[in-house]
Design a protein around this nucleic acid. Structure first.
Length: 202
DNA sequence: CATTTGATGTTCT
DNA sequence: GAACATCAAATGC
């Protein structure tokens, strides 16, 4: 079968942790303006479980201008500004009002590497190009401007290219940068390709 | 190599 | 004011 764009039903899965694991090995693609398609293999993800997860922006049912996107039905992008500089890309999952999301933390460049180098102002294709949530967003031209955009459209989407990963190829550890979340910081909800160099931390 | 620091918008106290 | 799902450049070994 040809490359297949993931359908809305994929994102409406109710187990955000299982979905986070399943997104590793899929291919994130963007296309803006008249630029060529840029894409990369998803190598690292983190699950954020809505209202009950102290690391989540939606913890305790918090609704703000920023977080309202997370409460929509799964299958759209949640992009927000971190530290006033970095645009972080998340996949909204589950049904409406559940506020579950998966943060994409790293990709391995596939198509459009020259465009990514240009956007990032780099000379060489190396992990620092797209390994890290702020980095991959800049490489793929993802910004808060596409917050709420449908992931089955032609601006940003995710493809299944038939790669199947067994459990020993995927490592799960605690999430990055969520020390403030108390005991929830210990949850092993970060998934990454064990053998990949394209990871945000060693 | 490791550690420190500056950049900087939104949200919450 | 302070904290924050971060990064890059500068500084110290």
């Amino acid at each position: 079968m040809a490359d297949q764009k993931l359908p809305l039903s994929f994102y409406r899965e109710t187990d955000v942790v299982a979905l986070s694991r399943r997104l590793v090995g899929k291919v994130l693609c963007t296309q803006t303006g008249d630029r060529p398609v840029t894409s990369g293999l998803i190598t690292e993800t983190e699950a954020y479980s809505g209202c009950n997860d102290r690391a989540s922006h939606a913890y305790g049912g918090r609704r703000t201008q920023r977080t309202k996107t997370m409460y929509e039905a799964g299958g759209i992008a949640y992009v927000y500004l971190c530290y006033g500089i970095h645009h972080l890309f998340n996949v909204v999952t589950n049904i409406q009002n559940k506020a579950d999301a998966v943060l994409i933390r790293a990709i391995q460049p596939l198509e459009g590497k020259d465009v990514m180098l240009q956007r990032r102002n780099r000379q060489k294709v190396a992990p620092s190009l797209t390994a890290g949530p702020g980095r991959l967003s800049q490489a793929l031209n993802i910004s808060t401007g596409i917050d709420g955009v449908n992931l089955t459209g032609d601006t940003i989407w995710i493809e299944d290219r038939g790669l199947i990963l067994s459990d020993h190829e995927i490592e799960s550890t605690t999430r990055i940068g969520v020390d403030y979340a108390g005991s929830d910081a210990q949850l092993p909800w970060r998934y990454y390709l064990r053998e990949s160099r394209w990871i945000s931390e060693k």
